[in-house]
Write a protein that binds this DNA or RNA. Sequence first.
DNA 1: CTTACGGCCCTGG
DNA 2: ACCAGGGCCGTAA
Length: 107
Amino acid sequence: MGKALTNQAMALFKSQVFLFLSEIPRGECIAYGELAKKAGFPSHARQVGSLMKNLPKDTKLPWHRVVNAQQRISFAENTDAYLRQKTRLEQEGWVIVGTKLVLNENS
DNA sequence: CTTACGGCCCTGG
DNA sequence: ACCAGGGCCGTAA
């Protein structure tokens, strides 16, 4: 049972997640869990998801480059959120089948 | 205080 | 490749 994160730890977690996210280049992507690890909190994948969900709509952060550990978009296929993310990833060269990121044509 | 709920993840079938 | 089950942990109700 891990102890609860202090407010300060959470603040650090957030800033680290946003920092590493901002460094993901166009054409690449990263898993929620990977981002959590890099930020120093390996068991907080879901919290990364929450952070993404709560980003302001006009954010400049590349939230769409965050996918799940199976390289899939974590939204149901018939949703708006899914379409938004898929469209943005396709603009960066990804070929996507269903929710699966198959390959990137540019890389 | 306790439930419920996620933009999750991992391990088997 | 697909799915279920268990674990995870902050946040809102």
